[in-house]
Design a protein around this nucleic acid. Sequence first.
RNA 1: CGGGGUAUUGUGUAACGGUAGCACGAAUCGUUUGGGACGAUUUAGUCUCGGUUCAAAUCCGAGUACCCCGACCA
Length: 425
Amino acid sequence: MLQSNLFCKISKDKSQDTEAISHDLLTRGGFVDQLMAGVYSFLPLGFSVVRNIENIIRKNMNEAGGQEVLMPVLQPKENWVKTGRWTSMDVLFQINGSGDKEYALGPTHEEVISPLAKKFIFSYRDLPFSVYQIQTKFRDELRAKSGILRTREFLMKDMYSFHATQEDLDKYYDKIVKVYFNIFKELGIRNKTYLTFASGGTFSRYSHEFQMTTDAGEDTIYICNKCKTAINKEIKAETPVCPACSSDSFEEKKAVEVGNIFKLGTKYSLPFDLKFKDKDGQEKPVIMGCYGMGISRVMGAIVEASHDERGIIWPKEVAPFNVHLISLGDSDKVKKTAAKIYSDLSREAGSRVAGNKNDIQVLYDNREDKSAGEKFAEADLIGIPLRIVVSEKTIVKNSVELKERNKSAVKLIKIKQLIKIIKNA
RNA sequence: CGGGGUAUUGUGUAACGGUAGCACGAAUCGUUUGGGACGAUUUAGUCUCGGUUCAAAUCCGAGUACCCCGACCA
């Protein structure tokens, strides 16, 4: 991608309206644009990060046996009345259609997946299975805040699993805990993310959250010093010792919830009459689980976890590009060399995104009217993992300069060896 | 949903009730070119509605929007 063509305007002005670091960096770097409180557009740089996060999640969900679907955002009021959530869920967007019709905008999809699953479940032989989707969710938050960390419209992965027995749900639930940790590992935030006991809301006594520690977070968690399991402050009083290892030594930290999983049990299978015939011919309610992960919030969380005073430091797995090629000066020699490197790299790099072979991973700052300082400052802000500089100085040595965003060391690399080195980076 | 704050050009700010100004940005041209360089020219604004007044960015009332604290958070 030529930076001169990129639909993006990088700003050096810090807005007064931003408090959270991720909000400031993502806005100034041209990753997102705020339309109104709690509602954001994702620009090419930001959308690319979103897709990379999605694909990591998608890969892991598929490996966990999930099948991807896409359910409607627009949902009939009746289903929400049936579960009681038309009146009990205060963040539910309720909208009017023509005539007297009323609809809900999906904040979550139990009210859709349950009646849908009913059409496919008859016998114990149809169980277990799990389906998931990646989709925009709507929740009428009373107070949106902290940029994309808490919004009214956001991207979420939600998976639902269906089981014949509680034991089977328990087994799958534990498996998903491991899968989630693997996702956070691939996203580069595993070391700051804790499995957290939290309130189960209306479903069950407890649920589990995945909390990433950051000062920008709005939750407070108590991390067990012994086993590193955490407890959300909201249930700390009723759970004074670690539920995992019974230790009573904790460290208190601020955190943001990046995932939440529930054992739904029969909470939704009962109102929607979701039953199956067991081996003994008995009709039994299906046992359900659900597993959420906020994609846009994870994006903000990654920035909170990985930045310095100059800008974002994207983990390479989610970075919008993996190489930022910068040419300095406008001499023909530099321009030609940089252009050649750009086309060679673009061709070689291929794509780490399955099924999207044309995804371009090299951002080439070909702008001739920008000073070196400006280019470097902007490169630091948008945080692409590898920076390559081509200038008169480097060309004399048949080399380019290579710098990793998270390190200060600068290496001179022979142009001939560049592709090999980038590939191994 | 309770409380607080703010609202002047893209951003940050100034203007006693009396000519809306400055800086940055952006744009054009030229000079520059290894950490946000320089010159010239240009660009663009008083949140909305109502009231007071000869005169309102300024005073009054209502509304709206955004930010922050709290509560809430399938």
